[in-house]
Design a protein around this nucleic acid. Sequence first.
DNA 1: TTGTTTTACTAAAGCTGTAAAGTAAAATTA
DNA 2: TAATTTTACTTTACAGCTTTAGTAAAACAA
Lengths: 335, 335
Amino acid sequence: MKVTIKDIAQKLNLNFSSVSRALNNKPGVSEETRKLVMKTAAKMGYRPNVIARGLVSRTTRTLGVIIPDIINPLFGAITTGIIETANQNDYDVFLCISNWDRNKEIDYINAVQQKQVDGFIVKSVSDSNTILLDTAHVPVVGYESWAANNQFSSVSTDNIKGGYIAAKHLIDCGYRRSAIINGPENSSASINRRKGFIQAFIEHNLKIDDSKFCFGEYDIESGYILAEQLLREHKDIDSIFTNNDVMALGVLKYLEENGISPGKDIGVIGFDNIGIASMPQIQLTTVKQPKHSIGRIMVNLLLDEIKNNAENIQHYPQRILLEPELIIRKTTCKK
Amino acid sequence: MKVTIKDIAQKLNLNFSSVSRALNNKPGVSEETRKLVMKTAAKMGYRPNVIARGLVSRTTRTLGVIIPDIINPLFGAITTGIIETANQNDYDVFLCISNWDRNKEIDYINAVQQKQVDGFIVKSVSDSNTILLDTAHVPVVGYESWAANNQFSSVSTDNIKGGYIAAKHLIDCGYRRSAIINGPENSSASINRRKGFIQAFIEHNLKIDDSKFCFGEYDIESGYILAEQLLREHKDIDSIFTNNDVMALGVLKYLEENGISPGKDIGVIGFDNIGIASMPQIQLTTVKQPKHSIGRIMVNLLLDEIKNNAENIQHYPQRILLEPELIIRKTTCKK
DNA sequence: TTGTTTTACTAAAGCTGTAAAGTAAAATTA
DNA sequence: TAATTTTACTTTACAGCTTTAGTAAAACAA
């Protein structure tokens, strides 16, 4: 069925290792033989079994990528960046979707590691990362994983700064009584964005009330439910900072359904700058993350580490922080 | 470094094949030894190298998936369905994004095939599928590939019917002069949706003008540009059928920016039913595809074929057509 | 006790490829 | 022409695992 170098060798009455060298452009075969081998290989439809090759070289040119969810356009864009950059460097990607499930994440790490990936890119749900690191002796780059574990490199947007510029913008617009719709309580992104947000309020001698922090999942429903809850419990809220755009969409949905005009009646600012945020019907003010670049940078970092690892160069984990950018649209414009 | 069965064998003064049998629960080892091996393997942190195992079994429990784009929520959802179902069956997935580029697609097919995937799921951009089939002797399942090549199985929504119910709904709403914003001219989905659409118009003794068909890419920009063009060239258009929701979003963007009220001034119906379509600010009427199921069904079909292939059971390509469903929202409500 | 069967292993081959070492013939040098 | 080097191969080993065949010892039957 499948053509191997042995089949080629047999056909040409050559030893299979000569065929190997001919195909790999290594010395030790005459130009004549090499050409003959090449031609025969092409004619027979030979495709190297890179798996077998990997057994010898102990590399697979394959990366494992574990992401919570690709329907959230944030991760969709990051994943696209990852896959594109990996492919440009002749790596393929095992894509795993943990669906925010800690156990699934661990299962994936084990399964994919057994497939001998050369490295991992992980957006960890909980911080099972540590386990990963101990058991897998494989280079790893995380997204937003620094706080949890600085044994391996991490890339993220500067979330403190992102929270800060979000708050600063709200304050500049004249909002004074903000609420925050956070992601899960233990999410480091959420923690840092909140931290930066509060910091700006303090710097402007404004108080921000703990009771106006609420926590949920990073999805539309959560945004919707928490908006309802917040606005019911606190009549004085004049603006909401949601920890991502998808949640902000939920907030906007609630506002729309209840005849509350975002921007006028209440300010809303999100995080990520997903595509839909720019729709004229939405016009969500948000903090942009360089999503595609995040993917690209993570891969480049990982490939570096893989290379260093192969050459036994000492590994120093790096933390890369990317700049957030304020995108002002219509959901914040009190003045 | 990495623990192999040989390391375990050496430690226990056993032959490595006894270790192999012990770990795989095959007969030929005493219960005592088996337990000892198991315990030692766990203690030493042994992880089987499934790659090496695959060399012997000639399977990798890996699928190759080639998709044009995962930021379009349609493919995001299909891909999620694929990955989830694959994982439930202990398969991993190489995800490749062709970015609607025919050559990239071919490159991917070659690259991934060399990694000995057990099967392919492909949403082909052009129909390079044929090449694939000839060179790769590997089971393949396509999304919307039947018209192009019925050598391998294909799953899709019944696009003719989808187009039909879209038109029927517009007619029922009282619209009479529709335009169609299609995808690329050679897209089979686009062709079939248009065909069904026209059919409904004919059945209702209505005429639909060829000059109101236009073609573009499946993205927001295309929808935007073509809406502008259509409405400039044809003042009488009362409704637009776009071949997917993302394009419809572009149309809605144009309408919003020009003070034209969708639903009232002009009817808009999309295709796919992506998440944002249900946002109150959007409320896009559309034809729903069972996206997640499409992914699931493709994987199940593929795994069946892989199994049959292994058992040398004759392969008959199947065509699976799923039911589209009309989702009525606010962008169509003339009456 | 001898012969047979079963048990519990070991040895070796094979999956596909790379790489290092070995060899015979051709080409070069003295 | 003989000695040396180069060329073009072949042989062998190995990557990590499975599988088949082979073997020695233990268990059993006659």
